[in-house]
Amino acid sequence: MEQLTHVGAVSRRASLIGAFGAVAALTAAATSVPAAPGPHAQPHPSNGGMYLLGDSWAAGLHADPARALGQVAAEVLGMTAHVDAVSGTGYVNTAGHENYLQRARTASGAPRLVVVQGGSNDDHQALDEITANAEETYRVLRGRFPSARLLVLGPGPDPEPVTELQRTVDTTLAAAAHAVGMHYVSMLQRDWIPSRLADSVIDPDNHHPTVEGHAYLGTRLAASVRLLHPTLFA
């Protein structure tokens, strides 16, 4: 069901599990999210699932594409997941494929939740073009899925440590989301990945989340959805 492109091998770095445990402990202390359902659990009957539009982080590149952050979040929320994730793409950047806006125009289905993830691949694009394409992407998705809740998840530190250019793209996307009345969740502003624990979430060799990192990020995303869209689970 998931559309994934440019997917790499599974990365399982046992030496990072201890540090990841510390990150997971921070999440547990800060948020209250029900445990993920078992492998045979059925989706919550009141929702039609999650549609996620994103880049290589959503595709699980260099990790496990079947357990990337979107699938983890959906499972925690009791939803099915349809992931449209193409490595290297962004709101403007196509990486030889289609950017977010182009893919949004052909998105289909009847999800209850729509998440747009990413933006780091646009860090060398003109800011006014990022703004225009982001706002139009959000408007198109709202038009195609009028009954869905929408949420934008900004880029993570790609690479880490975070640069001023990364922060500029993040704030540009936040402004675009707010301009069209959408919730924006910033991994950078909320410090989802503290520098001292970054290697437990992001593989320093490829700048992408590890398997353990996806579990952590997916749990954080699920917590944000519950916080910002509580009526989705009423």
Rank of each mutant, 00 (worst) to 15 (best):
P111N: 02
N133C: 09
A110F: 00
A132S: 09
A95T: 10
A104T: 08
A134R: 07
T106A: 12
E98D: 14
Q117N: 14
S120A: 13
D122E: 02
L101Q: 08
N93D: 10
A126C: 02
R103A: 10
H97L: 04
R112H: 14
A134K: 06
N133E: 11
T89L: 04
G96R: 00
Y100S: 07
A132H: 00
A126G: 06
G119W: 04
Q102L: 11
E129C: 02
Q117H: 15
A132R: 15
G119P: 03
R105I: 05
P111Y: 07
T94L: 10
A126M: 06
D128T: 14
D122M: 01
A134G: 05
L127Y: 12
T106K: 15
S120H: 13
S108W: 07
A104G: 09
R103E: 06
D122C: 04
G90C: 03
A95C: 09
N133P: 02
A134D: 03
A107L: 14
N99H: 03
V115M: 03
Q102M: 10
R103H: 04
V114Y: 11
V114Q: 01
D123W: 10
Q102E: 14
R105W: 04
G119I: 06
G96K: 03
G118K: 10
Y91D: 07
A126Q: 14
I130G: 01
T131N: 11
A95H: 13
A110R: 14
L113I: 08
D123M: 11
Y100D: 08
N99W: 03
N133M: 05
G90Y: 02
E129N: 12
G118R: 07
N93M: 09
N133D: 10
T94Y: 01
A104P: 01
A107S: 13
A134H: 02
R103L: 10
G96S: 08
R112L: 04
N133H: 15
V114E: 07
Q125H: 05
T106M: 12
V92W: 05
A107G: 12
A134T: 08
Q102H: 01
R112I: 07
Q102C: 05
L101E: 05
Q117E: 15
D122V: 08
N133Y: 08
